[in-house]
Design a binder for these strands. Sequence first.
DNA 1: CCCTGATCATCA
DNA 2: TGATGATCAGGG
Length: 229
Amino acid sequence: MQFSSLPPDDEQSLLSKTNNLAGYTMAELAYQAGISVPHDLRFAKGWVGQLLEYCLGANAGSKAEQDFAHLGIELKTIPINRYGEPLETTFVCVAALTGNSGVTWLSSHLRHKLSRVLWIPIEGERQIPLVKRRVASPLLWSPNPIEEQLLKTDWEELMDMIVLGQVENITARHGQVLQIRPKAANNNALTEGIGKHGQPIMTLPRGFYLKKNFTAPILARHFDLPDHK
DNA sequence: CCCTGATCATCA
DNA sequence: TGATGATCAGGG
């Protein structure tokens, strides 16, 4: 295996580089990266994602926008079970709770982030020790018209609630394929939002997450599983 | 605190 | 047992 700290020049380089990682374990990748593997992910929840970013030469850090902005590609690791099904929802981006006037689906941060995603499935069953978990084959994906419509419908419903001062009534059950859930260091974190009377309030930061019923068919088609709906 | 990377752990 | 609400780490 070989790594470069340099970002790939083009989509094909990125793809082949990612394909070359398939089959390797977390222990093998971490050794090459010169970092140690935590016993589990309890206190290192983003560790796998950051390891893969490093291996692929993504611009590490907390920069906004896509991981490979020059390629217009967002990198997402996704934990899967033995059947290739997602084990977790997928965080997409923070949900802006103020300053949303004039923002449309077409100009939304969420649509931009999801316009082109390099999915890297990783074995994620907790019974598999982290050091032994392997990288599966990657998939470069863009939403098809049906997927985009599903996202758009949910996004518009959820944004309406935010704009209309209903943010504190939003639960993860809203949305068919997209949900809003807390996204914070802890429940003391506060950010500005709009209250039910239109007044400014301080509330928990939220993020958009893709539900598993959205990512599962994407992975199923990729792995050629008989799970297509 | 904000955003990136996400998974944990409780409870319905 | 799976999803919701909560939480962990780290850079800026």
